[in-house]
């Protein structure tokens, strides 16, 4: 069994089998950093297929679970080696207050994680101040706020207003998304970035961070 087999198992979402093989490969002396990088490529490839709906959400979610399980096994060895892949960025992500629809946020989270972002997930129905407190604790680069209903979109506006109010405007890039949200709304409320779909989020956010 090889790294190629592990990549196949992860792509197929075989969580337990991936864990077992990762453990075995680790004992055989496989390079954990290279393994993670190659598995990240698998996830990026799956993400591309998902963007074309050649695979569907269950497949990519299961693969994400398998990837996470493998990373959990490899992480202690990576830390011990002293090498550390730099995170693309740190993100506080949540669904705004009053909105309990989390599916879009969950897909974005997966896309960000598989592209090397560190994500703090606030879940759904998260109060505006919680986004900011979590960003401060994490030292985040981004605050990502999702809204699925028109009547919960003001929650995104409130986060930006609060940041200004407490003197943190510009400290975090505020990224918004969700079915009823668009560029016009982002412009209106002064969001730093609007992502039209989950697949585009990692690339658009990386570009924004480099500015």
């Amino acid at each position: 069994m090889s790294l190629e087999d592990l990549k196949k198992l992860v792509a197929e979402g075989e969580v337990e089998k991936s864990e077992a093989l990762a453990q075995k490969l680790l004992e055989q002396g496989v390079d954990p950093i290279r393994t993670i990088q190659e598995l990240a490529d698998v996830m990026i490839d799956l993400g591309d297929k998902f963007s074309r709906l050649e695979v569907f959400l269950p497949e990519i979610m299961l693969a994400g679970d398998a990837m996470t399980a493998v990373v959990n096994i490899l992480r202690p060895r990576v830390l011990a080696s002293g090498e550390k892949g730099a995170a693309q960025g740190k993100v506080v992500l949540g669904v705004v207050k009053g909105d309990v629809h989390a599916i879009g946020k969950d897909i974005v989270k997966l896309m960000l994680q598989t592209n090397g972002y560190e994500v703090k997930d606030l879940g759904a129905d998260a109060p505006s101040l919680q986004f900011i407190k979590a960003a401060q604790e994490m030292g985040a680069d981004f605050i990502g706020a999702s809204a699925l209903m028109t009547t919960t979109m003001p929650g995104q506006k409130e986060i930006i207003a609060l940041l200004k109010e407490i003197g943190l405007n510009g400290t975090y890039k505020v990224v918004i998304g969700g079915a009823p949200v668009g560029q016009e709304w982002a412009d209106l409320i002064g969001a730093d970035l609007y992502c039209p779909d989950a697949s585009s989020a990692p690339g658009m956010m990386a570009k924004l961070l480099k500015k």
């Binding site: 009053g98 028109t150 919960t152 003001p154 506006k157």
Partner: peptide, 18 residues
Amino acid sequence: PILEEAAGQLIRSAGPTE
């Protein structure tokens, strides 16, 4: 159709404007 504002105020879910 769905309202996003009432009496000129943005409607906020679960609040008095809703």
